[in-house]
Each structure stands twice: as structure tokens, then as C-alpha cells.
Computed example of a mutant assay.
Amino acid sequence: MKTASPPQGVHVIASDAEAIEAARRLAAAFAPGASDRDRDRRLPWQQLDAFTASGLWGITVPREHGGAAVSAVTLARVIAIVAAADGSLAQIPQNHFYALEVLRSGGSPEQRAFFDGLALSGHRFGNALAEIGARDFQRRTRLLRQGDRLLVQGDKFYCTGAIYAHWIPTLVVDEDDRQQLVFIPREAPGVTVTDDWDGFGQRTTGSGSVAFRQVEVRPEWVVPFQSSFERPTPIGPLAQIMHAAIDLGIGQGAFAATLPFIRDRARPWIDAGVERAADDPLLVAGLGEVSVRLRAAEALVDRAGRAVDEAIADPTEFTVAQASLAVAAARALTTTAGLLAASKLFELTGTSATFAEDNLDRHWRNVRTHTLHDPVRWKYHAIGNHSLNGVNPPRHGAI
């Protein structure tokens, strides 16, 4: 398996506007090969290096450490722009930005300066957070102390981006049964990354498995995690708005693929009495429904981004709860809108859109797979429980 080394000559983005422009430029370059990469499950090493070298992976680094400290609104827009071109590529840096936010909220000044500097220089952070069936703390990945040594032992799955990473932020339970996030070098002895992700969507995200066997780590790589959710922090809302942006972007990509197919290849229904599919009134109305849902979802993502920015600027019980609620609403609608756009692509274009050579089903496979990341029914519950009972959403990474 190929191993990652940071790209040379990484650009440092200086503003929100520059970040948006860079995302648009990269999306235009990523889009032409997205279908082939998905079909052949060809891991996008070259595209990831270009993505990293553009400076976009460093845009949330604070200004005091040399970054642009872009807004959550801009971060979500960047992710959606890339997702419209390639949904898998857009998901890979989600945990990178998540790790940087955990650092910003709970890391020491020295830790923040060190890892922020790495992010600006092109180092990618993956993740090893999830474990299958390990709700019992005793079975979870552990941070063990042996004399003066700290060791990590355990197994992880759904490790999006770990294959491509230079560092793998890993969720562990310490000897006091408290959760910590340990930044572990990808090439550290005892680390094994296995490319065994076989989901029908998001095929090139590198969401495989990571095994840790007596991996020695340094104390300065251990960042408080559990304590960051025992007080109001924007970690959860920021994580979730990125997921909303991925679903939005995939839906926008599906919609963009629908339009030329209708204009150039689809046939009108016989009862429409028109020559072109683009003049079929029911088809046009269906297309309008998709457009409205996507625009509404985009507006909710922007609204949620502003709420997250307020929580970052002043993390209180109120601002963090408001951000969580705004992001929950955005995730609810981006799920609906993304799935609608990917499904309507076929309903409105007809059987010829199912040809394997076009691979248009990748849009539905990608959005269906990604929308399962967290159950959207609990987003509705969080909003309803707050509206009815005044209960704030729980504080964790899935809200």
C-alpha cells in the first residue's frame, strides 16, 4: 500500500474568498475523473496531494498560528463545492478539520501551535474513532501506562482518511476510563492500516480499519477529549455541519448531472405532447422541486454556519445549543434534499440514465451511504425536544 508524505510547496490561504476560489478551481479539476475513480475504486492519491497543496486543509488554522481562520460558513461551502465534484474526496478531510477543532477547544497552547503548524505545511490528519460493538469501555482501544511509556492497544473501523493520513487522531480510554484523543504518526511501529472498506458508496474515502499493537506515543500527543464535552464547546456542531455540507454537495452534483441529460438524451412522456423532454411540464415541475429543496438546504447550512461561528466566538450553553439545533435542522434537510436529487435524477431522465457506462448511480450510492453516518431521526428529535420541552441537545460529536 502506498504511504503518504506531505506534498511540497503547500500554499497558505489567506482569506475566506481565496478559500472559495481555490475550492472551485479544484472541483473543476476533480470532476472529470470522479466517475472512473468511483467505478474502479481507484484511491485518489494525486487529487489528495493537489487538494492538500492548495492550502485548503489549513484554512481553519487560527491567525495567530499563520492560518486564515475561515468561518464555518466558508468551511461548509468549500466542502459542498468539492462534494458536488466528488463526494468521496470531500469526506476525506472532515476528520482532519474535526481534529483541529478538538485541539482548538481542548489542546494546550503548545499542542495547538505544533499541530496547526503541521496542518499548514501539508500534513493530513485521518481518524480512528469508531469501534464495532465496543460500547463496553473495557473492550475499547486503551491508552496504557507501562512504567514511563504510554502505549495504545486496540482496533478501529470506519477510519475515513487513515490510509491517506500522516497522523491518525485516535480515540482511546485511559486508565481512569476517560476518553482522550491521541495523535499517532501513521508510520509508527505497531500501526496497521487495512484498506477493507467495501461500502457501495463513498468508495474511495479510505474508510477502512486501523489496528494498534503496543504503539508507543508521547504525552504531548494526548489531547483532552471527554472534558471538551463536559463544558460547552462547538466541536459537535462543527463536525456535523461538515457532514451536512457533504450531503448538500453530493445532491448538487446529482442535480448538475440531471440537467444536461434531460436536455440532450431524455425523451418526453408521450402524453406530454411535446418534442423535447425539457418541455415536458411534469418533468420540469419535478426538476423545480429538487431545485427548491437544494436551495433551502443550502440556506439552512449557511444559517447553521453563522450559528457555529457565534459558538466559536463565544462558547456558552446558549450559543452551543443554538448551533447544535441549527446544524441539526441543516442535516435533516440536506439528507432529504440530497436523496431527492439523486433519486429524481433517474425518475426524470428515464431508463437510459441507468447505463453502467454513465455511472450516474454513484450520486445516489454516495449520498445514501453518507447520510447513514448519523441517524437523521435523532436530529428531528433534538429539535422537537427543544421546541416542546426546552431541552438542549446533548453535547457530543454527533449533534
Rank of each mutant, 00 (worst) to 15 (best):
D280Q: 12
A69M: 15
V173M: 07
N127Q: 15
R267A: 08
H370L: 14
P234C: 11
R186K: 09
D196E: 06
A17K: 10
A119Q: 03
R276I: 04
V274D: 08
R213A: 14
N392M: 09
Q322W: 09
I13P: 00
I399F: 02
A278S: 09
R42W: 06
Q94W: 12
D49C: 05
G236T: 01
M242G: 09
Q180P: 07
L43G: 05
R124E: 03
A337R: 09
N389E: 10
R263Q: 09
T141I: 07
D374P: 00
L118F: 06
A85M: 09
G58W: 00
A85Y: 08
A337M: 10
V308M: 11
G147R: 15
F51Y: 08
Q153I: 03
R368Y: 09
R303S: 12
I312C: 14
I163Q: 12
A321S: 10
D38R: 11
L345Q: 02
V284T: 11
S88H: 06
G147Q: 13
L238M: 14
G33D: 10
G206N: 04
D38V: 05
V301L: 02
G397S: 08
W167T: 03
L120C: 13
G9N: 13
T369V: 08
A188F: 07
I20S: 02
W45P: 03
I13E: 01
L248K: 06
V173W: 12
H65V: 05
E347D: 06
L283V: 14
Q202F: 01
S105I: 03
R149F: 05
D16R: 11
V284G: 00
S88P: 07
L259W: 07
Y164K: 15
R178T: 05
A99S: 14
H381A: 06
L129F: 10
A272K: 11
V376N: 00
R265C: 05
A353V: 03
E101Q: 11
V391G: 11
G154N: 06
R263N: 11
R303P: 04
F125I: 01
A329I: 07
S209M: 01
I399Y: 06
T351W: 02
S352V: 02
I79D: 03
P109T: 02
D247R: 07
V223M: 03
I241M: 13
D279V: 06
H381E: 11
A239K: 15
T204R: 12
A28T: 13
D40I: 15
D136C: 05
G397F: 10
R140E: 15
L120I: 04
T205W: 06
A341T: 10
V152L: 15
G58V: 01
D38S: 13
I399C: 03
A69P: 06
V367H: 01
W364D: 00
L339H: 12
W57V: 03
I81G: 00
L360Y: 01
G253V: 02
T334M: 12
V217M: 07
A29V: 09
T319S: 15
E175A: 11
W197S: 11
A332H: 00
S291G: 15
V223I: 10
